[in-house]
Each structure stands twice: as structure tokens, then as C-alpha cells.
């Protein structure tokens, strides 16, 4: 029976057959749960009650009105801005600087700056707890030595968010920088040399030649940094600040967790989760579209 089909059809059937176990797994354990979340987002349910009340778009409408969520959204934007500065702009500058240092020094840099990347976020959070600890902690001690009023970084509304940013920044800095260095290595030396012959100097060379050529890498790290700003920060928030003090360090993903597991508002929490998922889905499509465009521009 199968032998009657054309070679092309047979090949495509074989291909589909080989991907089907993986696709089956995704269907059952990723898409089905996601659809489940989407369905829950239209209901009011407290996790234990046998009945769920269908409420239509109410959960989504509440998202627009709830002030706590507004704070979480505002903080998510703040996290994003801070992290774009610390783990995108700063690594670009460091990468530029690194082209001037000795090869051996550069290697040492790479290993050092990259090492936090392989540490679990939960562990990274407690590693930094001591630095921020008001009693005997590093920053606290320096603060006191300088004669400043004692400051508890993690429980002061002004600094809690910054403290979380520092932890995530420390962990992700090297990762972004390594990607930038790899992207830089991919730019052909001939192009750079040609520009130098044409009179491009350090700054101009970077601004008009290297950065545009690096843009696929920069887009990639921009998207992953945005996802870090929403998701990565969750673990240190959960372990160290609990979103506080007074919601000062909460973010959108922490709010998803808090609504479901602390206040048992499963429907509302699911609605936020779906909204976040959709935002990232759109961003991902945008990134793929953009990188395809830039690649073709590069090859032309």
C-alpha cells in the first residue's frame, strides 16, 4: 500500500512520523495545559470549590482596573528599563572595551563574567542575601563605615527593586556579553579593515559599522532580557522580598503566582498568565521576522 505512494509523499510521511512523538508530547503537556489556563481565565474559581463560575471577560476587565496590577505592570517596566541598561548597554560598552585588551586578559574576563550564568537563580538570590543583609552584610557595613543612616536594602521601598535588579544583572551580564562577543567574532575582519582604510575611527566604526552588523545579536538579547525582566526576577522576588515592601518590588509574574497560590483567585491569575504569554508570543514572532529581515540585508 505504502509503496504505491510517490517517493515524495512517502518521505514526507516518514518525516511527520518522526516528529510526531515530540509533537504529541507538546500537545498533551504544553498546549493542553495552556488551553486549560485560557479556559480558566474566563471563570471564577477558588481552587477547592467543586463548581467554577463562568464570568466571561470579567477577569480581563479587572486587570485593567486593579491598582495592584497597575503597580506590578509599572514595576515590570522599571525592571525592563534597569536591566536593558545593566545587561545590554553596559555589556556592549564592555565588549567594545575588550577589543583593546590583551587576549589572555580577555579570556579571563569571559570565564569570570560568565560564571554566574550557571548558578541557579534560587542560589544566586541567597548568595546576595548576605550582601544586602542589614546586620553584618557587606553593603550595610560599608554604608555604616561611611557614616550613613543604616539602610535595609531588601525591605526599603526605595531600594528593594534595585537590589533584585542587581542580582539578576549579576547573573545575566556575562551571558549577554558572551553572545555579543560571539556576534563580534562573526563579523568578517575584511569589512572592518576596509572601513579602517576608508578612514573610520574607533567610535565611528562602532556606531556605523559594527553595531548595525551586530543587530541580530542585539535583537536576540533584547528579547531574552525582556523575558528575564518579567520571569527571571520572579525567583529573587519570591525568595527575598515577597513582592514587598508594600508592592515595591512586585512584578507581573509574581502577581500571577500571588493571585493563584496566595489568594486562590485562579481565574484572575490565569487571565494575567494568558496576557503575559500573548505579549511574549507576539514579541517572539516580531523577533523572528526582524532577524530574518536583517539576515537577508546582511547577505545582500
Amino acid at each position: 500500500m505504502i509503496s504505491k505512494l510517490s517517493l515524495k509523499t512517502r518521505n514526507s510521511l516518514k518525516g511527520l512520523l518522526l516528529v510526531s512523538p515530540a509533537l504529541f508530547f507538546f500537545a498533551v503537556f504544553v498546549y493542553r495545559p495552556l488551553i486549560h489556563t485560557a479556559i480558566l481565565s474566563f471563570h471564577d474559581w477558588n481552587m477547592v470549590s467543586p463548581t467554577r463560575l463562568f464570568v466571561g471577560w470579567d477577569n480581563y476587565l479587572e486587570m485593567l482596573e486593579n491598582p495592584a496590577l497597575g503597580k506590578a505592570l509599572q514595576n515590570s517596566a522599571l525592571y525592563a528599563v534597569w536591566l536593558i541598561g545593566i545587561i545590554i548597554l553596559l555589556p556592549i560598552l564592555t565588549t567594545a572595551g575588550m577589543t583593546y585588551v590583551h587576549n589572555r586578559v580577555r579570556k579571563m574576563f569571559r570565564v569570570t563574567l560568565f560564571s554566574p550564568t550557571v548558578v541557579s537563580l534560587g542560589i544566586a538570590s541567597v548568595m546576595w542575601l548576605w550582601v544586602f543583609n542589614p546586620i553584618g552584610g557587606l553593603l550595610g557595613t560599608i554604608w555604616e563605615e561611611l557614616g550613613l543612616a543604616p539602610l535595609n536594602w531588601l525591605s526599603s521601598p526605595k531600594t528593594a527593586l534595585v537590589a533584585i535588579v542587581i542580582i539578576v544583572g549579576w547573573k545575566a551580564f556575562g551571558y549577554n556579553m558572551l553572545l555579543l562577543l560571539a556576534g563580534l567574532g562573526g563579523i568578517s575582519g575584511e569589512v572592518i579593515d576596509a572601513c579602517k582604510v576608508d578612514g573610520a575611527d574607533g567610535f565611528g566604526l562602532w556606531l556605523y559599522v559594527i553595531l548595525p552588523l551586530l543587530s541580530p545579536t542585539i535583537f536576540f538579547i533584547l528579547i531574552s532580557t525582556l523575558s528575564m525582566a518579567t520571569e527571571y526576577v520572579f525567583t529573587p522576588i519570591h525568595v527575598l522580598t515577597g513582592g514587598g515592601p508594600v508592592n515595591a518590588s512586585t512584578n507581573i509574574v509574581f502577581e500571577i503566582w500571588r493571585q493563584a497560590f496566595r489568594w486562590f483567585r485562579v481565574g484572575y491569575s490565569s487571565a494575567i498568565a494568558i496576557a503575559v504569554f500573548l505579549i511574549f508570543f507576539v514579541l517572539m514572532i516580531f523577533q523572528m521576522w526582524l532577524s530574518e529581515k536583517v539576515v537577508s540585508y546582511d547577505e545582500r
Partner: peptide
């Protein structure tokens, strides 16, 4: 299969596999 075979919807399938990875963990943890 994705590396060697040509079949209908291959591009879409690769995209869907990658998209799984992009879903925030917290959106599926509930």
C-alpha cells in the same frame, strides 16, 4: 526529521517547537 526530510508544514512545526520554549514557565506552572 527536521534536518533531513521535506514535508508539508515543516516550517510551522519548527516554529511551534521553538515557541514552546518561549512560553513563560509561570504561565504553564498553574
Amino acid at each position: 526529521a527536521l534536518s533531513r526530510f521535506d514535508f508539508k508544514g515543516k516550517k510551522d512545526i519548527s516554529f511551534w517547537i521553538l515557541s514552546v520554549r518561549m512560553a513563560p514557565a509561570i504561565a504553564v506552572v498553574i
